[in-house]
């Protein structure tokens, strides 16, 4: 009764929340619920048989899924720190400039963000081309042997990570710049008067005060990179020898090449649980000192 009264009291608040909640329900909760449900079936579009946890058993016994999972972790933890570090560095470097110059740089770094990831992948495919590619052209100019960047097990994943780090971070730079602009100027002035050097100012003032934004960028970046698909699809199709296969790509091939939607749903659920877990860890670990 008490609860109902509370809800009634806050009815206007709930009313305004309702549109968002309905969209969240339709586009997130129901699909996730359906995914959990389908993962318990041998479902191949034309027939559906309940098999309990068999799909989960199968994927944990499948070396390809384990490889995809390891690759996904390597990719995510390869990209996210470098990309976040790059965004932070660029933000700090452009901060002292006048507004038009800052805007110019922010625009430049944001451009890849509004370009189709497929187009970006196609351009990089050309850059990495073993015979006509730009990268090997420079390698030859420097007297080095050309490298088959995407055809070698050892270089394929680092190439994809490098591409993502170079092209990514635009939106984070914009976010961090906005957050940095909200740090009172007198903090920096006081630190300078006290004799703090640039590194001290960066590590003791800038980074701690940017922590909420960094945390947000870290969580969102981890989620986005964990689900990476288009660059794998366009550039390597998981090869060579499955060295760049990721869970998202495996989910795609399992669902739409093999028509095994039950198994693909189980893979998606594992990915979902891992991402929730990573999100919780990141909030616990980095969120303890954050002042919002």
């Amino acid at each position: 009764m008490n609860l109902l009264r509370k809800i009634y009291k806050a009815r206007y608040g709930y009313f305004f929340l309702l549109p968002h909640f309905i969209l969240f329900l339709i586009f997130f909760l129901i699909p996730v619920g359906s995914g959990v449900y389908l993962s318990l079936f041998d479902y191949n579009v034309f027939s559906k048989t309940f098999i309990g946890l068999e799909n989960y058993k199968e994927i944990f016994n499948d070396w390809l899924f384990k490889k995809a999972l390891v690759n996904t972790f390597i990719y995510t933890f390869g990209v996210v720190p470098l990309w976040l570090g790059k965004a932070l560095l660029v933000t700090v470097l452009i901060y002292p400039f006048r507004k038009p110059i800052k805007t110019f740089f922010k625009t430049i770094f944001y451009l890849p963000h509004v370009t189709s990831s497929v187009i970006i992948s196609l351009i990089w495919l050309w850059i990495f081309n073993p015979n006509f590619g730009l990268l090997n052209y420079f390698m030859k100019l420097m007297g080095l042997n050309p490298v088959i960047w995407l055809g070698n097990k050892l270089t394929a994943m680092p190439s994809l990570i490098a591409m993502q780090v170079i092209m990514g971070g635009g939106s984070t730079i914009v976010l961090l710049s906005a957050a940095m602009a909200s740090i009172p100027e007198y903090y920096f002035e006081a630190a300078k008067i006290e004799g703090a050097n640039s590194w001290k100012i960066f590590s003791k003032i800038t980074v701690p005060l940017l922590k909420p934004t960094i945390l947000y960028a870290l969580v969102m970046g981890t989620i986005a990179n964990f689900q990476t698909f288009s660059n794998i699809y366009v550039m390597t199709q998981g090869g060579p020898e499955f060295s760049t296969i990721t869970v998202a790509y495996l989910v795609y091939t399992t669902a739409f090449r093999d028509y095994n939607l039950g198994l693909a749903s189980a893979m998606s659920m594992v990915m979902f649980v891992i991402l929730v877990g990573l999100g919780i860890v990141q909030f616990k670990w980095l969120g303890s000192n954050v002042q919002y």
């Binding site: 055809g151 070698n152 199709q237 020898e241 499955f242 093999d258």
Partner: peptide
């Protein structure tokens, strides 16, 4: 075959890369 194709591609990649 459609389910085997990616494994055959991986075999060819391994042969051409001499792994």
């Amino acid at each position: 075959w459609s389910q085997m194709n990616s494994h055959f591609v991986a075999a060819l990649e391994a042969v051409f890369a001499k792994t």
